[in-house]
Amino acid sequence: MQAFTSLTAVAAPLPLANVDTDKIIPARFLKTIKRSGLGVHLFDTLRFDPDGNERPDFVLNQEPFRHAQILIAHENFGCGSSREHAPWALLDFGIRCVIAPDFGDIFFNNSFKNGILPVRLPRAICDQLIEDAKLGGNARLTVDLGRQVIVRPSGEEIRFEIDPFRKHLLLHGLDDIGQTLQHVASIDAYERKRQTGQAWIPAISVS
């Protein structure tokens, strides 16, 4: 996983609430067995008309937002399906950070596993950042994970909270599985303990 330390980039304003993962990447694009290549379908129905032409009024079809690496949205971003194709599509497009008042729980988790930083900030602050973002290429935001601040174009710093364990993994680009396997002795011990007195959990084999 790519580490996330600090990012200074164009931010795209997407002032919509309840942007569900079907909207981020519709189900018909989930028929892939790879993680890469989904960026062309990101926000498919918002970005393209039924004939596949770009909708000029959609933010990611406009300069400089085509090159945005930060996205700012409203409440409940990434609600709905558990599809990790949503962060894969965002990442493939180039988005490394999403800022919103709150997120769907599963999307929030999935983002961290892919080197994308989801930042929760109150709605009023998101709206301020959306106004900053609308200024385009001359108004880059900086997201500094180490210091847990977002730096506005004015230089004002906004602090955000993040779980320390997730911050550690993200800063160093660490793989979760590798972390857990350092505790494999505990897992072995737990399984041994459960084997006694847990006969109500039958083993599965399909015949």
Partner: peptide, 20 residues
Amino acid sequence: FGIGTSEVEHVLATQTLLQR
């Protein structure tokens, strides 16, 4: 509860998840 594909891999490999 539902999980993403990275967590599917985590469960396949470790039979556990990192959760709060």
